[in-house]
């Protein structure tokens, strides 16, 4: 099992690699096209700002490579937003896997949405072994709305997609690497069941 964590200028890669390590999996942290193409599982983390991250992906050609990947791919946090068509953050054209926009939360409560909130998931493989409404850890100001790709939803100011899926592309708005045992189970499911 070869797991590659894509390293770009907006990732909390060490925490993701540490979470995989706790599950007994080694990972490679890389932005090398060859390493990414050879991976069995690809993780695309992200903490940072969308337009800057997209510029970096374009400079490195990762914007062309990522949509062509056929192996299971997991975007995390900013990673989910970058897999959308567009983000309001810095008016960024994104990777376009999910035909929808990442928008700034409207006024109504504190922003960022920071802390532990429930997800209502579809019971798919990624959520095997979890309760119906487990708690996970969020930190974000932009969200993807509900769509045909939604596989989990969460309520904050409005209902939004806490997880999306299209074919081999999975994405989580929360941080599984920081979401205690629930998060570790989701990562384990991604590695072992998908």
């Amino acid at each position: 099992m070869k797991i590659v964590i894509i390293k770009y200028n907006a990732g909390n890669v060490f925490s993701v690699a540490s979470a995989l390590r706790r599950l007994g999996y080694d990972s490679i942290i890389s932005r090398d096209a060859k390493a990414i193409k050879q991976a069995d599982k690809i993780i695309f983390p992200g903490v940072g700002e969308a337009s800057g991250a997209m510029s970096f992906l374009r400079e490195t050609g990762l914007d062309i490579l990522i949509p062509k990947l056929e192996k299971p791919f997991l975007g995390i946090c900013l990673g989910l937003q970058l897999l959308c068509q567009y983000s309001e953050e810095g008016n960024a054209e994104c990777l376009g896997i999910f035909d929808q926009k990442a928008k700034l939360f409207p006024p109504g409560n504190k922003i960022p949405h920071m802390g532990w909130n429930e997800i209502k998931h579809n019971g798919g493989k990624l959520f095997t072994g979890l309760t119906d409404k487990p708690f996970v850890y969020f930190v974000h100001s932009y969200y993807a709305g509900l769509s045909e790709f939604t596989i989990a939803e969460t309520d904050y100011i409005l209902p939004f997609s806490s997880a999306l899926r299209k074919d081999n592309f999975y994405a989580l708005q929360f941080h599984p690497e920081k979401s205690g045992k629930t998060g570790e189970q989701i990562l384990k499911n991604f590695i072992e069941l998908i």
Binding site: F14, S15, S18, A19, R21, R22, Y137, V139, H175, E177, K178, S179, G180, K181, G183, E184
Partner: peptide, 11 residues
């Protein structure tokens, strides 16, 4: 901090 991040699964 590295040791904490390796072992602890909350923020």
């Amino acid at each position: 901090v590295k040791r904490i991040a390796r072992d602890i699964n909350i923020p």
